[in-house]
Design a protein around this nucleic acid. Structure first.
Lengths: 245, 245
DNA sequence: GCTAATTGTGACACTTTTGTGAAGTTGATG
DNA sequence: CATCAACTTCACAAAAGTGTCACAATTAGC
């Protein structure tokens, strides 16, 4: 379970904000702290570099335009040095300029926000990136309850017992595990699991859901995958639904 | 990809354009409809205010300079009134004046466009904001007192205990939570929750209200949903004191 | 208090959505 | 070319959600 919903960071680490404009820094710090994150500031690129190497913050928010060392330069250096390979970075770009955006993303930033931005947007982006990367960090043991996935091997196991899944079933399961407690329509699943422009009967999803359920059923409590009538499906392992009639 | 790419709104809602210049309205409407959005216009700030409260459009495009009620004033009022509002707003500013921009953003606008603008820019901005806020929906837990809704999971819980609701019950509850302390006639509820042109006995609403109440009853003090005789129903979590004929 | 109107309640039937098994299709592999 | 595995489609069964009704309970007006 990721503590992301409440805003707290899993590792108890902090978010590093690298920007030389005090006003922006202030605003970001306030927003993020209100949202429950720990924040540290740095106005100096080189210094930030040190902090990153030493502390390994959970996330870096980086201004693209800075006097000493540009944000772009910094991300490039970080990605190159590789020690911080999977450090999530959000870039602050000056304005909605295509060029900046592209550069930022190419140099390894995970997301970008163009100034000016709303506090809500900031927090949303931060959460989104953390959610993504938290899920990705532990590339090997992706586990929830009795269920564990091995992403590199594309296999799943329940209580240590490997279960056999077709490729599609596996991807479906992985997608669900990465997006727990959310309802996805059949269309969305076709988009994101099947992979885009497919002309496939939406009912096909049902069939694969069924297979997945069948594979998951023997051990764990049944209702890992719940049907949301008229809407789609939802994966939530700790199901604690109150029954009444 | 999601339906956003094609321009369609997830919720089937529409974009509200508030501007008093017919030429601008026309241009915006044309552009957006070409891009596949549903659009509605309003030249009057106060009227727009009503539409927003009642319909909850997916996005509001707001002229900052308007005779009756300035765009700025309107956004301020909106943000202040409805604590649960998370309505994306794009401001149209007269020209690129720093002041306007800052005011717009401080008052909660998510983006601004300065006139004159190109159709392409307009559509791009609209898409950007919608994409952002679509992601936002999941992160904002909709909660009131002991009750909390998770819109992305389409679930409700009281004091952490999940309660089971049918699709219609859930939608009804969500609608009520989004529009607290307002009385809705059965007809209005049929329009908004059932989704428009349905030929259904109005008494049906009663039945579903009852089911909802039943699901909500066990824990929280009863009268979350109050009956307003001769008028309809009202959701108001805390108080239940003031009675009026 | 009485009557008329309005709302609450439970049961039941109807409709839509989903589950299920098997047959058909596709594409890769030897 | 045959075979196999994975995926899709289809038809039918099952389930869940929803609408309607008859009747009980409540409220308002007189």
């Amino acid at each position: 379970m990721f503590a992301v919903k409440s805003g707290a960071l899993v590792s108890g680490g902090y978010i590093l904000v690298v920007d030389d404009e005090p006003a922006i820094c202030d605003m970001i710090q306030t927003c993020l702290e209100l949202a429950g994150f720990k924040v540290r500031l740095s106005a100096n690129g080189a210094l930030a570099h040190q902090m990153i190497i030493n502390d390994r913050p959970d996330l870096v928010i980086l201004d693209w335009m800075m006097p000493m060392m540009s944000g772009l330069e910094l991300t490039r250096r970080l990605k190159r040095e590789d020690a911080t390979a999977d450090l999530p970075v959000i870039m602050l770009t000056a304005r909605t300029e295509e060029d900046d955006r592209i550069n930022g993303l190419e140099s390894g930033a995970d997301d970008y926000i163009s100034k000016p931005f709303s506090p809500r947007e900031l927090v949303a982006r931060v959460r989104a990136v953390l959610r993504r990367t938290n899920a990705l960090v532990d590339d090997v043991p992706l586990t929830v309850g009795q269920l564990s996935l091995d992403r590199s091997a594309q296999t799943a196991a329940i209580a240590g017992q490997a279960i056999s899944l077709g490729p599609l079933e596996y991807r479906l399961l992985e997608f669900f595990v990465l997006h727990q407690n959310r309802v996805f329509s059949r269309g969305q699943l076709l988009d994101r699991v099947w992979g885009g422009n497919v002309y496939v009967d939406e009912r096909t999803v049902d069939v694969h859901i069924r297979r997945l359920r069948k594979a998951l059923a023997p051990e764990q409590q049944d209702e890992m995958i719940q049907t949301v009538r008229g809407a789609g499906y939802r994966f939530s392992p700790v199901d604690s639904s109150a029954k009444e009639s």
